[in-house]
Design a protein around this nucleic acid. Structure first.
Lengths: 143, 143
DNA sequence: CCTGATTGCATAGCTGGCTATCTAAAATTA
DNA sequence: TAATTTTAGATAGCCAGCTATGCAATCAGG
């Protein structure tokens, strides 16, 4: 076929993303974590107390998705949401002690999954792949 | 941080996959299609009458996911499911005329999205990206 | 031939992504 | 200052992925 499934970038990226997600899911399940919370945790481990809006813009995710993710994280004792005293609309998001303690093992799990999923590539090829994806994300035509 | 979010392959792949999915979603919406059906359609456009099991193994997707996807496709008039006379457990999946007619415009939309999402890369870089992803998928450590 | 294991599929229930829409709090402007 | 617009967040409803489980048809051994 003129649109070979294994030759289409979009098809391959979707497949590879599923492979990654499946692997990471099993690796962080023992920690009580799920994949959807991971990007949020990375931001908050770096900078605690961000607003929901901050997270939305930093992670390129829809506001509604972020709100739901934060609700699950709150339910699971990973974060607290406190209204910003300076702006009654905003809520600042703070990690619990439990979530702070998960930083090291969670990152180790993610690195292990990166290794496993890219086991077929040389170190140089992995760097190339990362560089190409970063460039693609930087240069995509919006809309 | 030691695990730079923009340097992690898994993080980038997830992000890029979302970018692709968003773009393709809007492009194929006018055709009455959604992204989840796309891989299935590619297989059936190539080989009509596959069983659900065939699709599951070819697409590396869970059986339950495939069953749900096929239900939506049936509801939307894209496929028919017929029991295999030779094996009462199997169901063979056949495209409707409507789905067959969507082949050309759907593939054109996917190619357009590939172009847009990889607009920041040269042609050579796109080929490299595709080759690296294929190699990664071929060589990942299972489990 | 009958029983038990295997196979193909459906369903329930969850996460996580999206759009659309609503509310309340600021911010702007007439 | 009062009315309007903009902004932050929540919620409803959908698609798409997953695991776990149940059921019915087939297959394999005894």
């Amino acid at each position: 076929m003129e649109f070979l499934k294994d030759g289409s970038a979009g098809y391959l990226i979707n497949h590879l993303a599923r492979v990654f997600a499946r692997g990471l899911t099993t690796r962080i399940k023992p920690l009580g974590l799920t994949t959807g919370t991971f990007p949020t945790l990375l931001e908050l481990w770096e900078t605690d107390g961000l607003t929901q809006k901050d997270l939305v813009t930093r992670l390129d995710i829809e506001q509604a998705t972020m709100a739901n993710t934060l609700s699950r994280m709150e339910r699971d004792g990973m974060i607290l949401r406190r209204r910003d005293p300076a702006d009654g609309r905003s809520q600042r998001v703070f990690l619990t002690e439990r979530a702070r303690a998960l930083r090291e093992p969670a990152i180790a799990a993610a690195q292990a999954e990166n290794e496993a999923a890219l086991a077929g590539l040389t170190l140089e090829e992995r760097d190339q792949l990362v560089a190409l994806m970063r460039k693609a994300l930087a240069g995509e035509t919006p809309g």
